[in-house]
Amino acid sequence: MANSPTGETVTERIVRVLETFGTDRTVQTTAEIGRRAGLPSSTAHRMVADLVECGLLERDEEQRVRLGMRLWELALRGSRALRLRQAALPFMERVQARIGEHTQLAVVENDETLFIERLSHPHAGANITRIAGRLPLHASSSGLVLLAHGPEELRERVLTGPLEAVSRETVTDPARLRRVLADIRRDGVVVAPGSVETVSTGVAVPVREERGRVIAALSAVLPRGAPTRHAVAELRAAASAISAAIGAHGP
């Protein structure tokens, strides 16, 4: 792709346009997209029009812009996350039915926790995570599992900081976080009360592929103070079943 006068490629600018959308910002005007992407107005209008024409963006009746169905379609073709989600979903449904609380599946993406599936019960407690939502790796039970079992260089990057406090109880001290991660590797589970929301406790276990590498975290979000033993047992059984399913059908 040709460079812009600033040295950016067209691909880089397209990515910046798409990244202006989020789970809490699904519809925007072209002017808002241009401002958030740091693009001149004429460039933003031209790029948005091109992306709408090829289906990666769509306009509504008020000419506001949202991500297009074609982008969703292309993203799912051959997606590793989709295959993992399909393997995990039956066992996540069983966990969710038995514990009656939020059940989530997450992976590492770009040094963050990316949630690729979430099942919720109508009477479940508070939970800020969403499908395709992200949190810092150190700030949720899922992220802590992924960080504990991830490559050493990933842990060092995260531990170097800054370690953002998502709640008052998020672990932000590097020395303490190292101890927490060592405990997770030893115990194979984390129980993290208040790390994201003070009223909730996150419980998470690793999901492994055939050779034992951790590829995801399976978690539940319980009300603060609720017993965790049953949830841990259900999550462990489901993680083992997911690993077997992945091994049977390939990565």
Rank of each mutant, 00 (worst) to 15 (best):
A220K: 06
E197C: 04
A31H: 13
L67V: 14
V232C: 04
L76E: 14
T103I: 03
R186Y: 07
R13H: 09
T30A: 14
D50I: 00
G161F: 05
D187K: 03
A233G: 14
G194N: 01
R179P: 04
N3H: 10
P5F: 03
V190K: 00
V15W: 11
E112F: 06
S167R: 03
H123M: 15
T172K: 05
V205C: 08
R118G: 15
P193H: 06
A231I: 13
F21C: 02
A44P: 01
E53Y: 09
E53N: 13
V199T: 15
L76V: 07
S167P: 09
V191M: 00
M47S: 01
G34W: 13
E58F: 08
T228Y: 10
M69W: 11
D111G: 05
R229V: 15
T9G: 02
M1K: 12
T170Y: 10
I184F: 00
T201W: 12
G125H: 03
E117A: 02
R80H: 06
I99M: 10
Q104L: 15
G161D: 05
P162T: 00
R134S: 13
T129V: 15
R176N: 00
G194W: 00
L84D: 13
L163M: 08
R130T: 08
V27K: 11
G55E: 04
I116A: 01
H149L: 02
R224S: 13
A31N: 05
D60S: 02
H249Y: 06
Q28G: 02
A97C: 10
A182W: 04
E12L: 03
M69E: 15
I116H: 00
I116N: 04
S167I: 04
S120I: 07
H138W: 05
R176L: 04
E210H: 10
V190Q: 00
L154P: 06
T9S: 07
H102S: 12
I131C: 12
L57N: 06
H249R: 09
A226P: 15
P40L: 01
P40C: 01
G161A: 06
E12T: 01
D50E: 05
L71N: 02
E32R: 10
H123P: 10
P193G: 03
A233E: 12
S141A: 15
D60H: 08
G143F: 04
L146D: 12
V214N: 11
A97L: 08
